[in-house]
């Protein structure tokens, strides 16, 4: 189970790096946080899982979406 989640995290991060749409990249990063939260929970660390869910998936994603909203959505480089 943990190995599957870790493999999904690797795929998720490669997608987040390669994708051109910044909003999709931020959402993929949020999904990455959610997967790592599940990994923490399965490894018997519910405290860290709570922190990851609140900070990584909640506050961090909101702030990054706001930054995308205020700047450019397309990555030109």
């Amino acid at each position: 189970m943990v190995e599957v989640l870790l493999a999904l995290m690797v795929v998720n991060s490669i997608l987040a790096l390669q994708i051109r749409d910044m909003l999709a990249a931020v959402l993929l990063l949020g999904a990455f946080s959610l997967l790592s939260c599940l990994v923490f929970f399965l490894m018997n660390a519910p405290d860290v899982a709570l922190t990851e869910a609140a900070v990584g998936t909640g506050v961090g994603t909101v702030v990054l979406i706001w930054i995308v909203y205020k700047t450019e959505r397309r990555d030109e480089a």
Binding site: A54, G58, V59, V62
Partner: peptide
């Protein structure tokens, strides 16, 4: 954790 949940 509680503080961050309140903040969210």
């Amino acid at each position: 954790q509680g503080g961050v949940v309140i903040a969210s």
